[in-house]
Design a protein around this nucleic acid. Structure first.
Length: 623
DNA sequence: CTAGGGTTAG
């Protein structure tokens, strides 16, 4: 049975066979100097076990590959390469210093190898990011009927995770199950992480639930898995559960939950987590610090983000980029640009492609067209070639500013492959500036790229409807029905009294539903008197104008706002989160609402914040 | 002697 499974694994997992690469060993590059030789012969008088230990500690004290090579030479001269612990330790250190070629040479020369030797080789390839060869060596282990061990398995499972190869990963899982080994927590953690990263959250969850014992790492992996799968609320539940079981988080676990809170976007939870970190006196290093910056920023508190940034003793490019992005989300392009200038003054730090995405995004959110163009040109000076994300920012920047022709020309001459986000940005701009032809083209491209996304069909049919092309409308609708697609709901959350409430279009599930609708009707009346005009261009359905107005008033953003108005005390800030981009009509609705109700409203959508105050938005008209 | 989980964009 197991033999069959091994065969199956080998058939499925090997797509190519590569030959081993040979290279000169570092040991060969050294001659043994007299004093080393003397020292070695001296110690050869002693017992074997002591010498073995001596060599191991000598190897451990190596600071670089050259040191390892020197000891390697001694080991050869004194005939200690037969001692597996010694040879394995040499292998391990070559691998640690990423001298994988040296490790391979030594491995091939070793006449006796044990499971540790093999495991170290597998780990060595993984360390250098060569997951292909990592799995290749593992296949040799499987083929040679050596027994699987709990040291090698986590590494190869991680390799599958990195390669997003759930097929091979699943086969390894099967091998583990059928081999009758005890479920090891290292192996399980790796499997859960692998399934999660491959988007198979249900498999990850199932495995996690089956585990007889869960340690800190398995919990952490599962918490992160939920956050990665767009279910950060469940990350939070799991984190509390873990603590209730008496498990104390370490720094990696804390970073994971901070990350989940960033995705949650709930200010209240962000505060709790940060207070907890202070209470537990967790050292805030670069990684945790950066995660905190990101969390505070995404939960709407840029000042707290900046405070963390300023308090950090050490910062890397990621920390700077996170802080620049933080200002970008909040429409503070000036501060983002200032921060970038400050970063340039720090020698030894150079911006990476993400720094520029953050910068360009800041510019596009605030409508800083010229500055954005300048930054885009600056990329070349740092040897960074724009990728599709940079171009998306530029299309967004030009498009929102109404420079559709320039945006369109950029799309035509794009040296990179266009993705759905890029077309989505362009389409958004076309809708803002009501350019039907260009919108049609963008929607068609979206439909080609993602034929399974129902939103694109609705969008395209609406564009045709606006243009009176009813035959085309029917065609698109039919196509959508043929493919059995249904609409995905857009949700809106609002924080009130330390709780988060969720709404979807036309929601009536909330216990205060009746009051919410009354309040909304009231509010709409007031806003219309103040000058708000419903923009039915944003109703994605082919219905009468009157019906469209009715549909607009069912938008989840508005329900959330109406609820916030009745559930929170006057004068307090309203925090709203939307999982899709807020439409133009709601944007204008919020502007008027902030004027009429004298309430400040902060809306987060697609990682952008819109602060509505006294009838205007922090990002001007660049929503 | 060898092993699992953690930071920035979209």
């Amino acid at each position: 049975m197991l033999r069959n499974l091994r065969g199956k694994f080998l058939r499925f997992s090997s797509n190519t066979t590569t030959k081993l690469r040979f290279s000169t060993s570092s040991a060969a590059a050294y001659t043994v100097s007299d004093d080393l030789h003397e020292q070695s012969s001296e110690s050869s008088q002693a017992s074997v076990s002591r010498d073995t230990g001596d060599y191991i500690s000598a190897i451990l004290s190596c600071k670089n590959v050259i040191d390892v090579g020197k000891i390697h030479a001694q080991v050869i001269v004194n005939g200690f390469l037969q001692e597996l612990p010694v040879a394995n330790k040499l292998l391990y250190l070559y691998a640690q210093f990423r001298a994988i070629a040296d490790a391979e040479t030594l491995f091939d020369e070793m006449s006796v190898k044990d499971s540790v030797s093999w495991s170290v080789m597998v780990g060595g390839f993984a360390k250098t990011g060569d997951f292909f060869n990592c799995l290749r060596v593992f296949r040799e282990i499987v083929r040679s009927s050596l027994s699987l061990d709990n040291y090698t398995l986590p590494i190869v499972i991680r390799a599958c995770r990195e390669k997003r190869d759930s097929v091979v990963g699943g086969l390894i899982h099967e091998l583990v199950l059928k081999s009758g080994m005890d479920l090891d927590s290292y192996v399980c953690a790796a499997l859960v992480a692998m399934y999660a990263k491959c988007g198979m959250i249900d498999d990850a969850c199932k495995l996690f639930d089956q585990l007889p014992k869960r340690d800190l790492v398995t919990w952490t992996v599962m918490i992160g898995a939920y956050a990665d799968s767009g279910r950060p609320d469940e990350s939070w539940v799991l984190f509390e559960k873990m603590r209730n079981e008496g498990i104390v988080p370490d720094r990696a676990a804390i970073v994971t939950i901070v990350n989940a809170c960033a995705k949650l976007g709930a200010l209240h939870k962000a505060t709790i987590v940060h207070d907890y970190i202070r209470l537990m006196n967790f050292p805030v290093g670069v990684i945790l610090g950066t995660a905190l910056i990101d969390m505070h920023a995404k939960c709407g508190n840029v000042d707290a983000a900046r405070e963390v940034f300023d308090s950090m003793k050490e910062r890397n490019v990621i920390s700077w980029s996170a802080m620049i992005a933080a200002y970008g989300y909040h429409g503070e392009a000036r501060k983002a640009l200032e921060l970038f200038q400050m970063m340039m003054l720090e020698r030894r730090l150079s911006p990476n492609e993400i720094t520029f995405v953050s910068l360009l995004n800041s510019c596009s959110h605030a409508g800083f067209v010229e500055e954005g163009l300048e930054m885009f040109d600056l990329m070349a000076k740092y040897g960074i070639r724009p990728n599709v994300k940079h171009y998306t920012c530029m299309i967004d920047l030009l498009g929102r500013a109404g420079r559709l022709d320039e945006a369109s020309e950029m799309i035509e001459t794009l040296p990179v492959e266009k993705d759905e986000t890029l077309w989505g940005s362009f389409l958004g701009a076309c809708r803002i500036h009501k350019n039907v032809e260009m919108a049609e083209r963008a929607a068609m491209s979206l439909l080609e790229l993602q034929p399974e996304n129902s939103g694109h069909y609705i969008l395209l049919s609406n564009i045709y409807a606006n243009d009176g092309k009813w035959e085309e409308v029917a065609k698109v609708r039919n196509l959508m029905n043929q493919r059995g697609l249904k609409k995905v709901p857009g949700y809106t959350w609002i924080e009130a009294n330390n709780r988060t409430h969720r709404f979807k279009v036309g929601d009536r599930t909330h216990p205060k539903s009746k009051e919410i609708y009354e309040s909304l009707r009231d509010l709409t009346d007031k806003l219309e008197k103040a000058g708000y005009v419903p923009d039915t261009n944003f109703v994605l359905h082919d219905v009468d104008e009157e019906v469209k107005v009715g549909m607009l008033s069912l938008h989840s953003e508005k329900l959330a706002l109406a609820f916030g108005l009745i559930a929170t005390p006057e004068g307090s800030l309203l925090r709203i989160t939307k999982n899709l981009r807020v439409c133009g009509d709601c944007h204008s609705f919020f502007k008027f609402a902030s004027l009429v109700t004298r309430r400040e409203v902060v809306v987060r959508d697609a990682n952008r914040f819109h602060c509505f105050k006294e009838g205007s938005c922090s990002c001007g008209d660049y929503w």
